[in-house]
Amino acid sequence: MKTTKKHLRYAEWLSAEEMHTASKEWLSELNFVKDEHLFFEDLVTRFTSQLIASDKFSNSYEIVDAINRSEKFNNNLIEAVKIHENELQIMVDGVDQKEEEKAYTKEHQDLIIGIKEFLKEYKSLKMQLFEIIKNIKKEDKLNHLLDRK
């Protein structure tokens, strides 16, 4: 499957206030993801023995590795958004700096695309992790019921 690169032209018309609001929303969402990563680490720690004992150990290992990579990428995005937010001054300083303003708008477009793609991949990762944990819980429950008999 071949993907095509989409060009976001509407970002050129966003006001500085709209870009500031978008940056604040991104930071909020990315910080929430950061908290969820902590929850995932706790979840993986809690089910480590079942993940290792599982016949799908390689799949579990890949998910844990993907969580770690996702966490690092999320931290990089948080830093990028903070830097982007701090550079907003270029747009509101009243000085006509066409090239710098154009570069800032381009960076904003790149962040829109990057964050959207990250969140899409993150949602998929989250669903995979929950599916693995759900299967472990089902197996535990089944084993517990079988042991009672």
Rank of each mutant, 00 (worst) to 15 (best):
E12W: 12
Y61T: 03
E79Y: 08
I113Y: 01
L30W: 01
Q89L: 15
V81A: 01
D147A: 15
A66N: 06
E12F: 09
A103L: 08
L77F: 00
Y122P: 02
L43Q: 11
E131G: 09
Y61F: 14
Q109P: 02
A103E: 14
S23H: 03
S60H: 14
L51H: 05
N68I: 09
N68A: 12
T21W: 04
D65C: 11
N74Y: 01
Y10R: 09
S124V: 14
I90Q: 05
K149Q: 14
Q128E: 13
H144Q: 10
K24L: 13
N143I: 08
L88W: 02
L14H: 08
E79R: 12
E100V: 02
M1T: 10
K82F: 01
S15L: 02
A22F: 09
E121S: 13
F73N: 05
D55Y: 06
F47C: 09
K149G: 10
H20R: 14
H84F: 02
L146F: 11
F40A: 12
R69K: 15
A22Q: 07
Y122C: 03
Q89C: 05
K6W: 07
E71V: 10
L51E: 09
Q109F: 02
E36R: 13
I52D: 08
H84A: 01
S124W: 06
H144Y: 15
L38S: 12
H20A: 09
N74S: 06
S60V: 07
F130T: 05
V64M: 14
R9M: 08
K106M: 04
E121M: 05
E85L: 01
S23W: 00
D35Q: 11
K141V: 09
M19Q: 07
W13S: 07
R9G: 11
K141D: 15
E41F: 09
N74E: 04
S15V: 03
F32Q: 09
Q128N: 13
E17C: 04
V33A: 13
R9H: 09
R69Q: 12
K56M: 08
N86Q: 06
I63D: 02
V44W: 07
E100Q: 12
E99Y: 09
S60P: 03
Q50W: 10
S58D: 07
E62D: 10
K123L: 11
K120N: 04
K149P: 05
S23K: 00
H108Y: 14
T45K: 15
R69E: 07
F73Q: 14
I113N: 00
I132P: 01
E100Y: 04
H37P: 05
G114V: 00
L77P: 00
I113A: 02
L146W: 06
M127G: 08
H37A: 13
I83F: 02
V92D: 00
S124M: 15
E101H: 03
E41M: 12
K102E: 05
F47S: 11
Y10A: 06
T4R: 14
Q50S: 15
E87S: 04
K34A: 14
H84T: 01
L146G: 04
D93V: 02
E25C: 03
D110W: 00
T48G: 10
K126M: 09
N75W: 01
K56W: 06
L77N: 00
K116I: 02
Q89T: 11
W26Y: 15
E12S: 12
V33G: 03
T21N: 11
K134D: 13
V95G: 01
E121Q: 07
R148P: 03
L125R: 07
